[in-house]
Design a protein around this nucleic acid. Structure first.
Lengths: 239, 239
DNA sequence: CGTCTCCTTGACGTTCATCAAGTATTGTGG
DNA sequence: CCACAATACTTGATGAACGTCAAGGAGACG
């Protein structure tokens, strides 16, 4: 029952995520300009789609609250999950080169997002160069994350993958200033398995083991970490 | 012995890759501006590093000729290969968010690259908005490619992975106007295996099978494709 | 309160990794 | 240009990690 995530529809200059959205190099005046093109959408219900593969591209979305899953659905291979996006993350930058979104994005929990229209943003580029730089940073990070994830899938055991996933959630919550020893994670084993290229059965077995070792528990969508150090070492080191 | 790749140090406005580097929206005047910040480097010898993980970031590189491998080297897991870059590709955009390159890039063949200094490029952003858009496109594509690659690793069999890799090379050469039924590919089985999360032994077995089926051969770094359709269907379809 | 989905646990199977040994190819120094 | 060493490739035999199949129990949702 951790209440962990910001709510509401604050303006950018009041938003608790400001430090994340604008990590550096954006000044008060810049933010006010940006504010004019940011559209604060109504809450997304759990299970509501943010966009679908094939939808015409118009905007990227900054997550303010909740949890967004990005995935593809294919006849042959079922669902493939490419990422989970927390408050402070930006979703949809991959669609920039194309006129359409190539992936699906769905809210796994009640979520709030700001939409940032790219056409309007481009018109700001010349006035606020740092804004453009910030977008480049986000995309560059997305590329790096993707590669690290490939590395995880390629080189790590089932146990390491699960530990790594949990540890990365801990770090992300911690760095954003939320509770990180216990937090809500509305993700199915099936979904985590897909993201980690495992089966739900394997995930279950690993979680049982981690629980028996006293590292952490994950019951009813609530994660609780007991041994941070051990979790971290399981996440990084071999066997 | 296919002579397949452009050589030399043409200016942007004369470069054979112009259509690739500037797919659309860049006008003659824009290109001349860009030209001033493009630095045409001397050839890279086979085995020469373009940059190393940890090097300070300064520029991205457009590949004009040859073949560049991007990879990480780790104590625990050995070499992990993230991509092979052909003429017309751009290397190093992932480093934009950081002050350093996070991956290694090495020439697998004699190669030519243009380096594009990012600081200088930023100063052009306001004058040439399309140039910035082009950079965003390249990065967005890189994100998408990464996800498709993850999907390949997650969902496809060894045979499909190998077929898919070869097919993607065929497509890339074809779309850039090079020979694509036979071409030089100076990549070790070991490297391909790493990229596809397989072992050299498995790669060898699959290639032997493809050869026996009359699909293609790959001998002494020369690839020859006999049955495009079959290769394509092996690359895409299940089993 | 009942149904449906999710999770758990066990038994078994498969794909691909590992180990090993021999052959071919590439690179190097003379 | 040759000789030889080092590296890469091939092929077979064996094994292991994780997937698949199955069945029972718990949780979620109407």
């Amino acid at each position: 029952m951790t209440e962990n995530l910001p709510k509401g529809n604050a303006s950018c200059s009041q938003c608790a995520l400001q430090k994340i959205c604008f990590p550096k190099g954006l000044y008060r005046a810049d933010i006010q300009l940006l504010e004019e093109i940011v559209d604060r959408k109504p809450s997304l219900a759990k299970g509501e789609m943010l966009f679908r593969a094939g939808d015409p591209f118009s905007a990227v979305f900054a997550v303010k609250a909740g949890l967004i899953k990005v995935y593809t659905e294919s006849e042959a291979d079922g669902e493939v999950i490419h990422g989970f996006y927390l408050p402070g993350d930006v979703v949809g930058v991959d669609a920039l080169a194309h006129n359409r979104y190539l992936f699906n994005a769905i809210a796994l929990d009640v979520s709030n997002v700001c939409s940032i229209d790219l056409t309007q943003m481009h018109s700001l580029t010349s006035k606020v160069p740092n804004l453009n730089m910030h977008l480049l940073n986000i995309m560059s990070n997305e590329i790096v994350e993707g590669r690290l994830h490939s590395e995880l899938l390629s080189k790590k055991s089932a146990e390491q993958r699960v530990a790594n996933f949990l540890w990365s959630m801990v770090v992300r919550f911690r760095d954003r200033g939320y509770h990180y020893k216990e937090f809500r994670l509305n993700i199915l084993h099936k979904e985590m398995a897909s993201y980690l290229n495992l089966t739900p059965e394997t995930v279950s077995r690993v979680l049982t083991k981690l629980s028996k070792q006293g590292v952490m528990t994950w019951k009813k969508k609530e994660v609780e970490v007991f041994d941070m150090e051990l979790l971290q070492s399981l996440a990084n080191s071999p066997c």
